[in-house]
Amino acid sequence: MTARTRALRYSLWMLFRFSLAGVVLVALVVLVFMGLGSNYSFEWDKALEFLSWYNRGLGVTLELFVFSATLAVSLGLLVALMRLSPWGPVRDLAGLYVHTFRNLPALVVLLLFFFGLGQIIPLPTIRAPALPHVEILLGAALVAVYAYVLRFKWKRLSAGKKAALLISLAGVSYLLFLWSPITLFGKDYNNIFLWGVIAFGVYESSYLGETFRAGIQSVHRTQIEAAQSLGMNYLQVMGYVVLPQALRVILPPLTSTLVALVKETALIYLVRGIGDLTDQARQLAVPTRRPYIFEFYTILVCYYLAIVIPLSVLSQWLEGKLGISKARRMAVHHDA
């Protein structure tokens, strides 16, 4: 039995096992429902007609995520550098920032920014300039990233494999962005959306700030000394020695924070509906007009699972790759 067939059989077995467990769980739940006297009639086919609504919501959710994540990472870096600054007051200020936002619920931060500041400082509607064929550009970017990651293995691939890889990559990225619900460019972003981005960005930047700081501090002081002894200036020490090593420590919590951010974007529904995934489901699930409420919400749950689970798996895979390849190398420091 080759390794391939073994892997295939294993995954099939796993699928069977989890399906069985799922069926048992669902059966238990249905029994509980019936025991509690439910006489609900399920109408899945009627609910599934509304999938296009969900897709539109998915687009809004993802757009909110992309912008908030960018803001959170940038602010987080700034906060981390402030926390590591040699000036006490700067450190303390950043520390207050971090501890305040980490101890508040995300919803409260959102409300504070939107209703508190948002009413005082109304933001203009920003129009993102239209980029033609943005899917192709984004697809090309994806290919470039993957090519960079593969650059060492590239030389050892045969010509046929290289061609196959290129074609499949191009195809996947093209399809991905053709069907993508994200537009990002050429549309208006209104006041609500912008304040949402600011609120989520600021909130998550407090967590990311700590993550970045811990990562940078995890690089042993002796590494910095060695780099300095070569005559490197601050930027060179950071760029060539500290950050590459810090990145390995930062990546796992970074990805988990970003995954949490995707889930948090659902909160914007509570402020104002801007048509994100949760909002769309709520608009659909009006008991008087469409009484198949349970189905609508189950589909909503499935949509979130469909986004978040692949992201989690991806982040675990990344950690694994980084862990194996770099963990050995990082353990060079001996304790005398």
Binding site: T222, A226, S229, L230, G231, V241, K326, R329, M330
Partner: peptide, 20 residues
Amino acid sequence: LNRARQEIGIVFQQFNLFPH
């Protein structure tokens, strides 16, 4: 200092090679 350090080489007890 940075200029001077280019003229001074130092070898540490714990080697301090860059592991990455």
